[in-house]
Amino acid sequence: MIQLELVKKVFPNTTVPAVDEVTFSINKGNICVFVGPSGCGKTTILRMINRLVEPTSGNIYVDGENILDVDSDELRRRIGYVIQQIGLLPHRTIEQNVGLVPRLLKWSEAKIKQRVMELLEIVGLDPVETAWKYPYQLSGGQMQRAGVARALAADPPIMLMDEPFGAVDPIVRGRLQDEFLRLQQEVKKTICFVTHDINEALKMGDYIVVMNMGKLVQKGTPMEVLSNPANKFVKDMIGDDRGVKLLDLTRAESLMTAVTEGSAAARDCSCFLDAIQPVKMALEVMMKNDSDVVGICRGKEVVGTLSWTEIKKHIHKISGDQE
């Protein structure tokens, strides 16, 4: 668990705070995404959590412990850090880079080797091909994945990830996001994730913290932020397709009309969708099958129907809230 209490940072020789009295907490096992324009203080917040930057005022607690009471090197070995500029050691191989923290923690060489190979696999780098290369022999995207592997190496319960997928193309980024979310299902780490891409924030975050000019503008679940943007700044950042983005986060089951298996309504459906799929998928299925209604299933059983009219009504309702 990570807590920030009225944390403020004014860098030397500047007048405007880079981070201005920010308060929030992240529960164990959750991903909190910081999103906001360049220079709004996202990186500074991360770097205060692992004490690379000391706050001007305010308190930070990690697992209930004030971080000022922990030796800073020890704290950092417990917190995985993916830095924005990647920062692999140029004179060390990828194997040595990824094994850096385990070596600092004095793991056995055999265990380190095994762990590095496992991690390279996880982040989608060929272990045999990549382990002995130097960073300059990798592409930007591959270096970034090595950076993620390095941060995960010692299996730290907390991760700070500063635009970890910034240097890869949208398709690979989407895949890395999916893989990471799947990994997170297993490892349940407490993650601070920085991005300036609102779509990435909505996809990755259990919570989102929207920042602007050092100030916390809004915090909440993606659903809360989407359906109730705190102000024009948040609304503009989400963009004009707020309704569609919401449909991506809304499960089909939450809008459907419940029917019983075998009823006339259920039998009329020509296409089907799993109940936990987003409403956006329902639209996709309807379009593909040239149908106005889709049957919603749990397992093999049809439990509801969702029609184009119902979806339209829902969009109108949110858009109505908006004005």
């Binding site: 704290l75 950092r76 070995r77 920062g87 600092l104 390095r150």
Partner: peptide, 14 residues
Amino acid sequence: PREVKDAARGMGMT
């Protein structure tokens, strides 16, 4: 490079 020292520090090197 600054980011190299930065990363090293961030990983917990003394």
